[in-house]
Simulated assay, not measured.
Amino acid sequence: MPVSSVVRPTGHPGYSETLPALEESADAARNLVRIALATWHLDELTDSGILLVTELVANAVKHTNTRSIRVIVSRPSERFVRIGVTDKARVMPEMAKPGDDLLTSGRGLLLIDALADRWGTDMYRWGKQVWAELHCEPAA
């Protein structure tokens, strides 16, 4: 599937790709994050960005029955990179609660919460986007 790029008000392009809602799509999502961060000279965020997008994709695939997802990597401001995954489900993600069995699953949002500087969910009429942001230093 083609990667699309759109120039944003910050002057940084945004990258997005529509992928099948399958576990294997995490590879393409990680590649998209790598490309965007390398283009923006933010290689120091690559490890965290890859972990975040992997968890976001896994959550969308596991907890929705949507047929496709869209991965979006953008710069909403000079100081943040946003990694989001949209799906067509209108169910809010839920953080694991104390006492939940976290040995085999349920750690996704806990990991996102630990890695991201901030994260959230934007609800739409047709579905939602779960996103996470990483802080970056603006270019000097």
Rank of each mutant, 00 (worst) to 15 (best):
N59M: 13
G127A: 07
L51Q: 15
D117G: 12
F80T: 04
A140Q: 07
R107D: 08
W126C: 13
Q129L: 15
L45G: 05
S68T: 06
V57S: 00
L51G: 12
L51A: 13
L37M: 03
L45Y: 03
H12C: 11
G14V: 07
E55W: 02
P13F: 15
G14Q: 11
T121Y: 06
H63A: 01
T64E: 07
L19K: 04
D87M: 11
V57C: 06
E133L: 11
T10H: 06
V130T: 06
S77E: 09
A114H: 15
H12W: 13
P20D: 01
S5G: 02
G49N: 00
D100N: 12
I112C: 13
A28L: 15
G99S: 07
G108R: 12
T64G: 11
K97S: 14
A26R: 05
R8D: 11
A89D: 11
I35T: 02
D47T: 08
W119E: 11
V85T: 09
V6H: 04
A139N: 13
H63I: 00
L103S: 04
I112W: 03
L22W: 11
G11N: 14
S4Y: 09
E55N: 09
W40R: 12
V71C: 11
G49S: 05
D43R: 05
R67Q: 08
L52G: 10
L115Y: 06
V3D: 04
H12G: 12
W131A: 15
R8A: 13
A116H: 03
L52F: 00
K97V: 05
D87I: 12
T64Q: 07
I83E: 04
F80D: 00
V61C: 09
D117V: 00
I83T: 10
P138E: 03
P98M: 03
A58Q: 10
A140V: 04
K88P: 01
A29H: 00
W131C: 14
R30S: 10
R75P: 03
L45N: 06
W119M: 10
L109P: 01
